[in-house]
Nucleic acid binder design. Sequence first.
DNA 1: GTCTATACGACGATAGAC
DNA 2: GTCTATCGTCGTATAGAC
Lengths: 204, 204
Amino acid sequence: MPSHVKSGRYHHGDLRRELEEAALALVAERGPRGFTMVETSRRAGVSVAAPYKHFADRDALLASLAARSFREQHRRFTAATAASEDPAERIAAFAAAYVRFAAEEAALFDVAFCADVDKSSHPELTEAGQALFDALMPITRRLAPSEEAAFDLLIRIAAAAHGLALLHRQNMFGTTPDTLAATEARSARTARDIVAGAMDRPTA
Amino acid sequence: MPSHVKSGRYHHGDLRRELEEAALALVAERGPRGFTMVETSRRAGVSVAAPYKHFADRDALLASLAARSFREQHRRFTAATAASEDPAERIAAFAAAYVRFAAEEAALFDVAFCADVDKSSHPELTEAGQALFDALMPITRRLAPSEEAAFDLLIRIAAAAHGLALLHRQNMFGTTPDTLAATEARSARTARDIVAGAMDRPTA
DNA sequence: GTCTATACGACGATAGAC
DNA sequence: GTCTATCGTCGTATAGAC
């Protein structure tokens, strides 16, 4: 029998994980700005000192969540782009999946893009972001005549998807249930438009 | 001679304005989250109580700045789109000007889009945003077969410009002096691609 | 690893003098 | 309209007991 049962102290098999879950729920409720260590501790049922045995500071907890966000995006986008062989359709599927991720995993989206974590001091975070980028580049590479052009294509498609995801989050397109599907379609279509433009008028 | 000179008290011809300037400088230095009433007061050289004679609360000051941001965008985009008669070129000019605004007036950009002001409770803000939207819609209306299609077109172009502006701000494209021009070109090109796609394959 | 307790520092906003 | 002074709240982080 583990010590916490007889001691009466709170003890978790994985407090680190529970703190992350609590923090994520907090971000979901109050936005990226609303996250605090005090409230996270309270929700996890531990004292304010406990988290500091698992995370160096507030930023470290946020960075851990942001890295998880990139890994989850990686997982989702890999799955979404696997459905087709056609590069244009694959990147359109990515653009749609991007919007869906922002909508369905709002908290993870926020920690990755709206909480201002100092990326440079958290290599795990940089790596996760890089891995995501590296997974997408081969798709646009098949649509572009050079590495630079492939980068340009990916960036423009991702930027458009990001913008649409933000607008969707602000209820710019209404609140009916089919709004998400419509925004996904908008994002996919924009990706196709950008690809078509790049094919017609190559630059780099 | 105004009373403040003989009284020795601090007094400004327009403290309200000076507070806004100080707040904007603060946002420029510390980001939208770094804005506080205390520090704004200090920079304006007045006590912490003084601002509350000009703004109901923190949110009211932010909302006033956000409204100014939309008015400045309106001014800039009107100027940028006036250079051409061709609707496609006009909206491409808007897309470029959007990126430039985000880069050159970073603080105004941030208060409008990154500080979370409660828009609904500040009609001045809603109005300024609406006026901006209304100024742009006629341009895409001439490129689309319906009001809905014109909205779709404008939204997608603005979303792409917004995404690119954010990426530019994160130094995603490097820090050389010509980076801004390159991002403006990317944004303009993306706008043209989206217009071309809409013309080829109309939807609504 | 977790607790209790606390040092320490913002910040928002107000009261009341002038 | 501006000041001085302050209250109340909340946050990060640490020390030391267990």
